[in-house]
């Protein structure tokens, strides 16, 4: 019994918390505002954990994460609207909007796959380039993606693209549940779980080996190019999933929301949480989302306060909240209470 509880305690907590959120959303205990903050929290958790894979575990410095998010957002939105919603660009839907509910996870995953392919834009140069130089490449990748989208008039260019709300509505027409919170919860858990499994396998430990000594990794039989490709693609692919969810939550995307400022926001979350710590990234994504909302009354001054906080953080606790450790390392007793694999 104790063993079972330990084994499934995380599942239990997640199921209860997720269930509580969905139930209260369904009963409208939660306002639309609270609900959307909760959903952005999920998106931010996905973004920060996936960026941590590259910046924390692999020790590279990617500052173009929002670019991959944009690819995921646009691919899943365009595909969704083209297939399932009446739209000014694509005209009548190709398929019955009733199928939208079942196709939705596939749409998000396709967005993720497209973003993973876009990740090759950074993965291939990373074979020969490291550190600062690779950081510049990631910024360039971010700009390439944003500029490309801005210059395609058919999908709205810099004005953006909308129509995803219709898809969300048709999902709710089929089964009357708050579908967006449900999908966000599912994909958030899925993303963290995939990353966790990856980095804890001997295969994925190659990522840390590259971070700590790339020459030794290659000499000790780690195929560094392969590991880099897999890691960059996984990281950007998961960012693409976050982008897809983001697009459907807002019902509207424009290239401006995926610029370098957004990438910086994700970077702040990773450094706040601690490099190479998944639980740190989750914690900081949650805190950061709350912080952003609390500072909303400050409007544009917010962007003075938050960077200032970052400076203070770097001065007094450069390793972030968790600093390369997981929750279980910080509180060893907790380890007895759960198993997360």
């Amino acid at each position: 019994m104790v063993f079972m509880l330990r084994r499934y305690s995380i599942h239990l907590i997640l199921a209860l918390a997720g269930g509580a959120i969905v139930y209260s959303a369904d009963q409208e205990y939660l306002g639309l505002y609270t609900l959307s903050v909760l959903m952005f929290m999920g998106v931010n958790v996905i973004l920060s954990t996936s960026l941590n894979l590259v910046n924390g575990y692999m020790g590279e410095f990617s500052c173009g994460h929002a670019g991959f998010m944009a690819v995921g957002a646009y691919v899943s939105s365009l595909l969704g609207v083209w297939l399932f919603a009446k739209d000014r660009v694509f005209g009548v839907p190709l398929l019955d909007p009733g199928y939208a509910l079942y196709a939705f996870p596939v749409l998000i995953l396709i967005g993720g796959v497209a973003a993973a392919l876009a990740g090759l834009l950074v993965a291939v140069p990373s074979y020969k380039t490291r550190g600062d130089y690779l950081a510049i490449i990631t910024i360039a990748a971010n700009y390439i993606i944003i500029s490309a989208i801005e210059n395609i008039g058919a999908i709205g260019g810099s004005r953006g693209f909308m129509g995803m709300k219709r898809l969300v509505n048709s999902m709710e027409d089929v089964v009357d549940l708050p579908w967006m919170p449900i999908w966000v919860i599912i994909f958030t858990i899925l993303s963290v779980w995939v990353i966790r499994r990856y980095v804890s396998s001997t295969f994925g430990k190659g990522v840390s080996a590259i971070c700590q000594d790339e020459v030794a990794a290659e000499i000790m039989s780690v195929n560094t190019n392969k590991i880099k490709t897999v890691t960059f693609m996984l990281s950007s692919g998961i960012a693409g999933i976050a982008g897809g969810l983001f697009a459907y939550i807002l019902g509207y995307v424009n290239p401006g929301s995926f610029n370098i400022l957004k990438s910086t926001e994700v970077l702040v979350m990773v450094y706040l949480g601690g490099m190479g710590s998944l639980s740190g990234s989750i914690l900081s994504a949650i805190l950061f989302t709350i912080l952003l909302e609390l500072l909303r009354p400050l409007q544009i001054i917010k962007w003075i306060v938050i960077p200032l906080l970052l400076i203070i953080l770097m001065q007094f606790r450069p390793e972030g909240i968790m600093g390369n450790r997981e929750l279980g390392d910080l509180f060893p007793r907790l380890k007895k209470l759960y198993r997360f694999k």
Partner: peptide, 12 residues
């Protein structure tokens, strides 16, 4: 463990 990478026998 990581030094056994080339003969892991499984992938991503």
């Amino acid at each position: 463990r990581v030094a056994q990478h080339y003969r892991l026998g499984y992938g991503f």
